[in-house]
Design a binder for these strands. Sequence first.
DNA 1: TTTAGCACTCTTTTTGTTCAAGTGCTAAAC
DNA 2: GTTTAGCACTTGAACAAAAAGAGTGCTAAA
Lengths: 347, 347
Amino acid sequence: MKLDERKKKILSSVVEDYIESAEPVGSKTLVEKYKLNYSSATIRNEMKVLEEEGFLEQPHVSAGRIPSTKGYRYYVDNLMKERKLSMVDIDYINNTINGFGDTDAIFEQVADVVSKVLSTPTVITRNNTDTIENIKVVKISEKLLLIVLMSKNGTVKDCIAKLTDTVEDSVIDQMTSILNQNLTGTPLGELHYALNKVIRRDLEAFSTVMGDIVNSIKYEMSKDLKKLNSGVEKILDNPEFTDIERVKNFINMISTKEIIDSALQKTEENKLSIVIGSENKEVLLNDYTVISLDIEKDNKYLGKLSVIGPKRMDYAKTISTLKYIKDKFNTALTSNKKEEAKGDNSE
Amino acid sequence: MKLDERKKKILSSVVEDYIESAEPVGSKTLVEKYKLNYSSATIRNEMKVLEEEGFLEQPHVSAGRIPSTKGYRYYVDNLMKERKLSMVDIDYINNTINGFGDTDAIFEQVADVVSKVLSTPTVITRNNTDTIENIKVVKISEKLLLIVLMSKNGTVKDCIAKLTDTVEDSVIDQMTSILNQNLTGTPLGELHYALNKVIRRDLEAFSTVMGDIVNSIKYEMSKDLKKLNSGVEKILDNPEFTDIERVKNFINMISTKEIIDSALQKTEENKLSIVIGSENKEVLLNDYTVISLDIEKDNKYLGKLSVIGPKRMDYAKTISTLKYIKDKFNTALTSNKKEEAKGDNSE
DNA sequence: TTTAGCACTCTTTTTGTTCAAGTGCTAAAC
DNA sequence: GTTTAGCACTTGAACAAAAAGAGTGCTAAA
């Protein structure tokens, strides 16, 4: 798997030319455009070796070469140079991810920015390993309760329960303490199951009121499973989408939550996960590359942001941008601007 | 614009056959398939008249006829018979729209059901003519306020404001009463502007805390503008989507909030709005039909549900289904199941 | 008023031809 | 041993011509 300098140069030229042109790259193009000081025949011989080694592919005998999954992988791991972001992009990112709003809002902002800067569909999934720290129940009116869930990470969730009957303040206090005893420390993702247990074991006495509360919480939590899709249409401008069937398949795939979920495994500590073409376990994704980064706040895992594009995506730009975004994202999450004064923007 | 019985029969046969087959309908097909007791020559003469009158169109001289916008319009207004829903659909609708959850949840359920039963993209837009009735501010902890907005229609919205500084209870009371004095009666859709006015005029004294509160409310309200899109991919299975450009245009269009918004005018009292092809003011929609119904609760207008399909959509099924859905929808909204005991479903 | 018959038009499908791109191989050159 | 010029070969793309098929409009007869 060791390539000499000339082969490396050829491979990276093929990858970069193909990323730019979407056309198979021939030996002549390579010599002329990338000033390789050899004749096209030499390049041809080298390309043949690269093909035999599995780095390049040939769509058909009279076409140039395109990178294989293995070729892209080698390029990403060994040959690619990271790229500086353009000032335009930097400005746009900095101005848009301003950290205002709650976590949900920031997630939305980021998904939007990424899909705009990279012209690529962007998916954000949330994963709640965050745990319940405290539950408060506040009586708003005769038949309205507010339930506030505070998590260890500092997220505050709340929901309203409309009651069937009026309820004594003392009963509310009792229920609140039972809820706290049973649920403190429960990961938000598992709250659903925990609630079912609680309602069976301890709370039959308060059944209807408790039912109202529990259902209200369950519904609020279900919102969190939501997947955030942004800029799906962007990918359709790539030249690989001239085939109608492919468009349909892609739209279907991206609309199917399960497929995307399955495609995203946990990434390595602090690194971007790059899954190229057939490296994807999900067969439907074998023609695409998925690049994901973990979203963290105070070292807690909150979820994952992924962009999806053709294998022929601009790896250098995508990766540089995502790394930059990751920092901004973290800053936005930790320094929640809600806590800062807002007197300045009078609009 | 009066058509004799034979012309009516021919027109409705052309429309129905074209809806089914997506192919221009010729005179021979008509005679054989729809047992018209005339020769194909007679039918041809009649079709020619119908074309001259603008009810039919001919893609080219050696093709059959397809309905024009005017033809579809006549069909929908005069010829179409409503169809009984299948038991499968009725069951599915009844089981899925169960009225549990808050208004948002019900909207989502309905959008999902509609797009599944009709295999068509479904868009729900919310329009808040609903007005503020009461605002409560509850102190949850030192630096956390809960703001609860209650509307005339009974919707309850709430949001959390994280404060920069601690705040006296008396200040909160003061602010609450100022908010109520200024905002009661304001339509939710205009709250954004009203808040800006308020903060300038009366509340400079409390600026930072008030800023926190106002921004929190603004953010919460912005969620309401959200458009709900369901089943966009469904439309791509129609044979008109073999042209790649058309697919891209459609996906772009449906992703562009403004276009859809502009397409939806207020409908007549208690009726479905059916806008066919070139009847759409928005040029990009001229090849599509948009059918919308108003969503109401206790005679208040809450928003609009629309399905979008090719002009060649199955009008009879779509309209029958939407009428049925409208009832279910209203029932779900009024008899909010949150208020009913949930002891029965122990899962 | 209806219809059989037919010439006509236009699209779709098929088939064949040419063209250009890019290769692999061979033999010569470095 | 490595590199290169040269050339035969393969293949897809583009184009043109031909053939097939569908459905019409019109005429003249029933």
